[in-house]
Design a protein around this nucleic acid. Structure first.
Length: 622
DNA sequence: AAAAAAG
């Protein structure tokens, strides 16, 4: 009987003043060939000092020794055991040589010896003052989530949970959740985790900054911890069990860092692969064993072509920023990876799609990858959250720089916590980014820039420098629009507005994260007239003050209603399951009652149906 | 038209 998570967290924090769990003074790491008996695998090495408040035999009893069915991945799942019987359930073999059998995560046993403690980081977050840090890291402001509307559709939706303690994720993962100071699950976690633990496919639209990464990582890590997956071992080919794809390298890096924290000392190995960096180091990491592979599409295709990676054993597929992954630029690559390589088909693997926005036409595409899925929308209409104060100012093109200068001067005077608040400035083009950065710099504002024409090293350096506050202004293209979690971004400036309202939603979502407030300022002029209507609608839905001139602009422009049209009579819920649109389902159960709003009965057709053309309504949910 | 993603 656990008391409360809050207590546990408090105890953990009190005890962990300097928790060097895996200190350099640990055991000399055994040679590659040392055999670890099955019953000792997945345990922290005996020579390691125990983690603080890591009391009793908490580990080991729910992992490899786990008494559940060995060949059944998910308790609630009813997937066929797809042709891998020979591979599954043979746990207990030692790691063989090349071509032999390998227990899950081959190599992770010795890998654990050198597993870096991700909670003992010297990374940028720790360089800020403790008070500042504490508030940000531990502090998800849950009051901000009190009355968030939630909508689910699909068959037999598993009910949400209210606490992490209600779900049995396994001791090692629970401990990491406490180390992360997550006291209770956010709304998207409350709903999505039980659904994925039940083995169901999922399409999630949840607000920016609402905890999506943990929502998809926890069930995957937990599932891998409990399963016994022996995998074939080809000549330098590795067989990850889970694949997480994201649209930018920096986002993949970030997901990898998060996932490593969650999987610390669980025995689950997470590796990241992305372009722009030397492949050899990534290959080395892969060869040391991989359970969860986080990747950008291009580099993954490269690895697949070189037969360094096989997707044959993939049990979990996650597309983060899924609507971006399936838009024109990425779709062919994603289809290639998911449909034309050796990945198990939908219905066999479990597929999880997450984003803040999910336009209906992309939902239709996405259903190709899903099987009898549950759609989950979390957040308020207007997308991002009313935690972000949105301002729109009419600024002519030639006035933008001096206007930006005014804003920056004003907030310099206001300095937050003794340092200048971080400001993220979005522009349209890479050249524009360079030139604005240069101009700012020469005008006394320490700025840097991130965009696709910079080397990967420069990109990562720019991001680090921004996070640390060395250059508290970051000029960015859309490469930084999605998913990046940068603490202390107080202000997002849309120096150039995007053409698509969903991009706007993602950009402003770089502030106002984890329940904190933020400010977003947009420079609007005649070049942005196509955005006037959707922007005005979005702002109204998020209870923002809409300037009269923008309303006039909105009624004047865009009579036809382009793809930016978001009204569609959608009313209060922006993130709607496209399957609810009457026009869908030409053959299946045409016109029958395939939806029911709350967890019962409902949509009775398995995924993968395309028909119908709903109105091009864009979801504003993250 | 632009951005991203392999080299």
């Amino acid at each position: 009987m656990r008391t409360s998570w809050a207590d546990a967290v408090a105890a953990e924090n009190a005890a962990s003043g300097s928790s060097n769990i895996n200190g350099p003074g640990g055991a000399p790491h055994p040679g590659r060939s040392s055999y670890v008996p099955p019953h000792l695998r997945n345990r922290p090495p005996a020579s390691d000092p125990p983690a603080p408040s890591y009391s009793g035999p908490t580990s080991g009893n729910d992992r490899l020794g786990y008494g559940g069915p060995t060949s059944e991945l998910r308790s609630g799942g009813s997937r066929p055991d797809y042709g891998h019987q020979g591979y599954v359930g043979v746990g207990g073999r030692g790691r063989g040589g090349v071509g032999g059998w390998s227990s899950r995560g081959g190599g992770r046993d010795f890998g654990r010896e050198r597993e870096v403690n991700p909670f003992d980081n010297n990374d940028v977050d720790n360089e800020t003052e403790p008070a500042f840090d504490e508030q940000e890291n531990s502090g998800i402001n849950f009051d901000a989530y009190e009355d968030i509307p939630v909508e689910t559709s699909g068959e037999n939706v598993p009910p949400p949970v209210n606490t992490f303690a209600e779900i049995d994720l396994g001791e090692a993962l629970n401990l990491n959740i406490r180390r992360c100071k997550y006291v209770k699950p956010t709304p998207v976690q409350r709903h999505a985790i039980p659904i994925s633990l039940a083995g169901r496919d999922l399409m999630v639209s949840a607000q920016t900054g609402s905890g999506k990464t943990a929502a998809f990582c926890f069930p995957i890590i937990s599932g891998i911890m409990r399963g016994q997956f022996a995998r074939p071992r080809g000549y330098r080919t590795v067989y990850p069990l889970a694949l997480i794809l994201s649209p930018t390298r920096e986002l993949s890096i970030q997901i990898h860092e998060e996932a490593k924290k969650f999987s610390y000392q669980t025995g689950v190995k997470v590796v990241v692969a992305y372009g722009g960096a030397p492949i050899t180091q990534q290959l080395r990491e892969l060869e040391r064993g991989v359970d969860i592979l986080v990747a950008t599409p291009g580099r993954l295709v490269d690895l697949l072509e070189r037969a360094k990676v096989s997707l044959e054993m993939i049990r979990y597929l996650t597309l983060d920023e899924a609507d971006r992954m399936l838009d024109m630029g990425f779709e062919p690559q994603i289809r290639r990876i998911v449909e034309q390589m050796d990945m198990p088909p939908r219905g066999v693997r479990q597929t999880l799609l997450f984003s803040a926005t999910f336009p209906k036409e992309i939902q239709r595409l996405a259903s190709d990858f899903l099987s009898n899925y549950i759609f989950l929308a979390i957040g308020r209409v207007g997308s991002s959250t009313d935690l972000i104060v949105q301002r729109v100012e009419f600024v002519h093109e030639y006035d933008k720089r001096s206007h930006l200068m005014d804003l920056l001067h004003a907030q310099k005077a206001n300095g937050v916590h003794g340092k200048q608040a971080l400001t993220l400035v979005f522009v349209e083009t890479k050249k524009g980014a360079d030139s604005l950065e240069h101009w700012l710099y020469t005008n006394g504002f320490p700025a840097t820039t991130i965009h696709g024409d910079r080397t990967q090293q420069e990109r990562e350096q720019a991001l680090r420098s921004f996070k640390r506050g060395n250059t508290p202004i970051l000029v960015a293209t859309d490469v930084a629009a999605r998913g990046l979690d940068i603490p202390h971004v107080a202000h997002v400036v849309n120096f150039d507005l995007p053409n698509d309202i969903d991009d706007y939603v993602h950009r402003i979502g770089r502030t106002g994260r984890a329940g904190n407030t933020g400010l977003a300022t947009a420079f609007f002029n005649e070049n942005n007239s196509s955005l006037a209507r959707p922007l005005a609608d979005l702002m109204q839905e998020s209870n923002q003050e809409v300037p009269a001139w923008l309303t006039r602009y909105a009624s004047r422009a865009s009579y036809g209603g382009g793809k930016n049209k978001r009204s569609g009579g959608g009313g209060r819920f922006g993130g709607r399951d496209f399957r609810r649109d009457g026009s869908f389902g030409r053959s299946g159960g045409g016109g029958t009652d395939y939806y029911s709003g709350n967890s019962s009965g409902g949509y009775g057709v398995s995924g993968g149906y395309g028909g119908g053309h709903g109105p091009g309504v864009t979801s504003a949910w993250d």
